[in-house]
Design a protein around this nucleic acid. Structure first.
Lengths: 225, 225, 225, 225
DNA sequence: TATGAATGAGATTTCATTCAT
DNA sequence: TATGAATGAAATCTCATTCAT
């Protein structure tokens, strides 16, 4: 029932924003950026191609021109998101630190990355709703992430050899333990915060939990069964 | 685009099954059961009222008759899902156990419940994608869950008083630690399993991780800073 | 899973209000009263049987029991509305007044009745949108109203014979002139008031226009061509 | 743009006429034309988007593409209808005529416009059923119509100054008097005609009433209290 | 390479009405 | 006579995608 002054005014879906960026690569990145936020915000089914187009410097038609389908765009968004965390992970240089410090550093990095990138957490959650169909289909995602386990594996064997770590865990288990706690805080921030009436974003709480998680993991690795 | 894992998609547009159950309560429960699976499988936006009707002994019209809107149906599905875990949680009788055993029991219960109820985990994940809008709107959900924190709180103070627990944690933190690990295994089973090429459902792995999580939590509580 | 409190709650259209009035005539009148307001407020297409049921002391089923269909209910509402104005019109006793006074009285009565019964005005407007289909089909409405013209006709011939009225108008024309001005003020109150930023309901304006209309009609009848 | 009383309803569900006019402006106007007749014929609630599509060279989908919602389409139809009468009103050039002639011209124009545009009359009637909600929301409608009062106001003061008009009426009252009689004949043609068994459309009656209304207004203005 | 206009298919929701007792 | 439960049919609206240039 909006006022609508003149008769011929109409929105006509979204489309219509000339621009002509003349820089295909920039345009693609622009679309991927916007799509990342849209899908992270509303999921794959809930994300709107129209909404992405509206927030982009291009038109809806261009999205199809460059990405062919909504689902393909989503798949690329997901790939980029996974690439982000690994790119940084690679530069942690844990090898130069003693095992305990390295482990603590790894936990802290994991914590900080999830905390700083809720959109990554949401995309992973969304992908799981879709039974990881796109991860399964994307060799890129799988190959990007595999090395992460190597980091843990190397750290583990270094710590065991040095006698600092007392548990011969499967790297998968250690990785899961660390990821779980760092991920959950962000993925379930809304329901957890609402139900237990707390703001998991609050700096004090954040620090307290960062410490707790780091301590818990370190303690676990360094105590015998 | 729907994942549709192993769904026996019979007919597309539903509406065609006279039946006349004449048992409103059964009909409602039937709809809620089916809707739980549909929303858990595809999310709120991705879930189809048509699909729910098709798998129900009623018609699409009845869904609106009883539940008024897709979103309201989803909200009730969510309420029921939350009610499920708490109803069982209430009967754990941790008070009759010594603090360490009680803590271990609590972790194991949490682990088992999440493991046995992946649809609950998915619904919570979905609700977080929606920024907990329906949890925020539902006094029922909030009130159903609040007691869960009491369980943890009581256990904590009992353990501290007995000198068994060495850390004066905020109940929120302990609850988060336990939930995180039990939840993540299920919520991220698909991406985690695909990327690291393992099946988190496999009984051996399941047991190993159940043990690890229980030990980690118990150890953490029973060691001093 | 027993019926959890909040889960089973639902509105289920409207229906459901026991009552059992045990006075069919009263129930019918109740329904007609409520239906009058509903149809006057929203039109025939826009009026909701559900809404009528909700505001009545009966259920939706009773409406069909007594009136058979929405359209039939509307037709009876219309008949009653027309009966209302004529019932009063009959008791004006214009014959006992001199022609000018009688004419002024007739205009004032017409003005007051429309002013006091906007729902009647709205129902007539609605019926015209439907091309008077129900008036055409209802002998009752036609017969109820025909006498109104007689009143005007008698008044006219009396005035002419007395030499007070100078125009030998067709009664239809005089009736139309009077009705038009009294009706329009009410029928178009909303658009007219909005566009010209005035409140046709305001007592001062009301009185001024009542006077103007009465004067204009009287003047017209009492001046020669 | 004839009233189109009995519509030759062709097909029910529309959607089936590829066409591809490739002239958006023409398409929009086409839709607005057809929608004008549909809403005038059946009201906002009674008007069917399907019916509009069926009579248009486009599909139902295009209506939503250009107009976003049924209600918005209705609002634009209403705007256009109001714009129509004012566009002509502006070109009457009453200023070049002496006050009496100008007043008679104004009444005659108003009479003729309503007579020629029953769909406009019906739309205004419908809008009043909706409590002028769309007029209130549309600045365009309000601004299109405001000048109409100026025409009356200027004429009034010119007539008074010249000593031709003897009554210092509020322009609103004069405007109402004229509009009322011209509008009612058309708005209530169906009920009035049915009840009093006359055809207000018949040329003779039409002329007689046109004359009567013009005379009555002129007489009223030119006689002293 | 680029794009404004268009659209098929199907989604949710509404509403008068009837069933079964 | 009376009624709670159910429903068919059709309405409005949405959305990813393609056409035509």
């Amino acid at each position: 029932m909006k006022p609508t002054d003149s008769v011929t005014d109409s929105k006509a879906d979204s489309d219509a924003r000339p621009v002509r960026s003349r820089d295909p690569e920039r345009t693609k990145q622009d679309i991927l950026d916007v799509a990342t936020m849209e899908f992270a915000a509303h999921g794959l089914a809930g994300g709107r191609v129209d909404a992405i187009a509206a927030k982009t410097q291009t038109t809806k038609r261009m999205i199809y021109y460059y990405f062919e389908s909504k689902e393909n765009l989503y798949a690329l968004v997901l790939e980029r998101a996974y690439a982000g965390i690994r790119r940084i992970e690679e530069h942690m240089d844990l090898d130069r630190l003693d095992p305990e410090t390295a482990l603590r550093r790894l936990v802290e990095f994991t914590f900080d990355y999830h905390d700083a990138h809720p959109e990554f957490v949401r995309l992973v959650a969304i992908e799981n709703i879709h039974n990881a169909a796109h991860v399964k289909a994307s060799r890129a995602v799988r190959e990007t992430n595999r090395p992460a386990l190597m980091v843990v594996k190397n750290l583990l064997s270094r710590g065991l050899q040095a006698g600092v770590f007392k548990r011969n865990l499967d790297p998968v288990d250690l990785h899961l333990m660390i990821s779980a706690m760092c991920y959950y805080r962000v993925s379930n921030r809304q329901t957890f915060g609402t139900i237990f009436e707390c703001d998991l974003n609050e700096p004090k709480l954040r620090e307290r939990q960062r410490r707790m998680i780091t301590d818990a993991v370190a303690l676990f690795m360094m105590s015998a069964d």
